[in-house]
């Protein structure tokens, strides 16, 4: 019986991956609802769960592709591969409305640029302090500090190794979780009580999941304003990461 299930899944890998990811997301939403009362977004648990399963897969197989090295879960490599990932990221741009985006004005732009450059510099500095010296690894880890999408997209574009990519994603995920948890606590300090402030926040804090979950826990009405700017964040990061920022790191590190 078990053998038949295994055969059915391994012969229909991508479909199997849909089911597995669906299960992970479902469990994550339950954890989010009952463990943290919705304060930590379900997607954060899901990504963390994915990383944990990849760790487990790596321990079992001793290979480099995480859970996808197990035959039953090999479809994850296709579903989470560069083609599907980039395709879906491009699709999220459809949630941006130009007319509304114009309202963010110059403030949104400044926040977006600062929100890309500040985390990047911090990420590169930390990576440097921990002994990474090659520009590709430094840029990939720095980009991971921008968001957990910008990290792997940048890393893939400039040819980073899988372990640096994983570290880059981990950095972005930790950041998203920190944003989710500490936004309500720091809302007063950040003066997060009007749409303009939410846009500045969306540009600087980055990650859509972190921003929307953080704002939802602060004041639900602020969510679209923050998310609107934050949706540009990944695009800008993906544009700047493998180009301007990579060249800057390359120039500085020789």
């Amino acid at each position: 019986m078990l053998h038949m299930i295994e055969k059915a899944i391994s012969e229909n890998q991508l479909i199997g991956a849909f089911a597995v990811v669906g299960l992970i997301v479902w469990v994550s939403n339950l954890l989010s609802r009952y463990l943290t009362k919705g304060r930590v977004h379900g997607s954060a648990f899901a990504v963390l769960g994915g990383l944990a399963l990849a760790y487990w897969g790596g321990m079992i197989t001793g290979k480099t592709k995480g859970l996808a090295d197990l035959t039953m879960f090999s479809g994850l490599a296709l579903m989470g591969g560069a083609m599907m990932r980039d395709f879906c990221i491009v699709a999220t741009a459809s949630e941006v409305h130009v007319d509304e985006a114009k309202k963010a004005g110059w403030l949104g732009f400044i926040a977006l640029f600062l929100g890309t450059i500040i985390p990047f510099v911090v990420g590169v500095a930390v990576a440097r302090a921990f002994g990474y010296t090659d520009p590709v690894s430094l840029t990939t880890i720095g980009a991971g500090a921008v968001t957990y999408i910008v990290g792997p997209v940048t890393g893939a574009a400039i040819g980073a190794s899988s372990d640096v990519m994983a570290l880059s994603i981990a950095t972005g995920v930790v950041k998203a979780i920190l944003v989710m948890i500490f936004t309500p606590a720091l809302a007063g300090f950040m003066r997060l009580n009007n749409p303009q402030a939410a846009m500045v926040f969306g540009g600087l804090a980055g990650t859509v999941s972190g921003v929307s979950a953080g704002l939802a826990a602060t004041d639900r009405r602020l969510v679209p304003y923050g998310a609107l700017v934050a949706t540009f964040h990944t695009g800008l990061g993906c544009l700047m990461g493998p180009s301007v920022l990579f060249l800057a790191v390359k120039a500085i590190s020789g």
Binding site: M59, G66, R85
Partner: peptide, 14 residues
């Protein structure tokens, strides 16, 4: 979901 799948295929061990 795609990001979750991507996370599950990373070299987390390292």
């Amino acid at each position: 979901p795609v990001v979750v799948a991507m996370a599950a295929t990373q070299n987390v061990l390292v």
